[in-house]
Amino acid sequence: MRPFAYQRATDVPSAVAAGTGQAMYLGGGTNLVDLMRLGVATPEVLVDVTRVPFDTIEETPGGGLLIGAGVRNSDLAAHPLVLRNYPMLAQAVVAGGSGQIRNMATVAGNLLQRTRCSYFQDITKPCNKRVPGSGCPAREGDHRNLAILGHSEACVATHPSDMAVPLAALGAVVNVESSGGPRAIPMPGFHRLPGDAPERDTLLRPGDLVTAVELPALPFAARSRYRKVRDRASFAFAVVSVAAALDVADGVVRDCRIALGGVAHVPWRAERAEAALRGAPATAEEFARAAEAELAQASPLPRNAFKVPLARNVLVRTLLDLTAREDLTAAGDTGETS
């Protein structure tokens, strides 16, 4: 590991002041320390932001939630308002990593974790994301877990986060502080497609500090679901995942929010599926039609073509789960336990 200086920030201004040049912010370290050991990340200064007091979750005046960047993943998933108002977010967080990882991992670090593409993590191999212009061996090589949507000639990596998938579905807003002042960057749109600059995962610029993630009020998200498919029952990254919230009245979809994980360089908001569903009957046939509409734009690689029907099926299944609960409600079960 390359030697580095260590600084501990105690508030946002001191963090931003220290975060210049070849500095990197350190959250739980569960991704960054590993990448430093692998030689993939080589900061000259590590700015520890785990003592910055942005580790609280507060209700916003509009009825949403303001989640501090330093909130640990475990605390996010156990928060009563997250469990009640955004169950798919709690489900996604507990589906990621292990208990130890979630205790360490922060909200900002989770959003900014790098791809698990094996070539990216191996400094003896070329990789456009790690060394721009060096090539992308994944396209011809191991890409079973990589993208089927929105990838480019330059890079076919996926974003590995579970948490980011419901955040994209909800339209969360990422609050950023920098020497140039604060910014608010909405999701989806915070993460970027690879295009010809896969070295940039997000719209963040060097020195930008994520301070919070704001969730809008979305009452129907109280009925939402995260479903993750992986190679073993626990402690594995998603092969494909779906976050969905459904607002059904009189058998018709009034509104919905859907995002897919494990399929693209970004948490993939399924806008075409959403458009196909709004106003449609809440039936298995319509769910299948919506899933087809979304996956029609997929361009899988030879060894990950299985992800296309998998994503379609998981999407349909998730929507069916949600409407099964809708039927329960009609039968008198409010879905609340208090």
Partner: peptide, 29 residues
């Protein structure tokens, strides 16, 4: 650590029904 987390009411994928297909648990109450 895990037993302390459970005692504090922290949910898991099993608690939230995220691993048993079809089950949608409303919360940990």
């Amino acid at each position: 650590g895990m037993l302390a987390e459970f005692a504090a009411g922290w949910p898991s994928s099993v608690t939230l029904g995220a691993v048993s297909p079809g089950a949608v648990a409303p919360g940990v109450e």
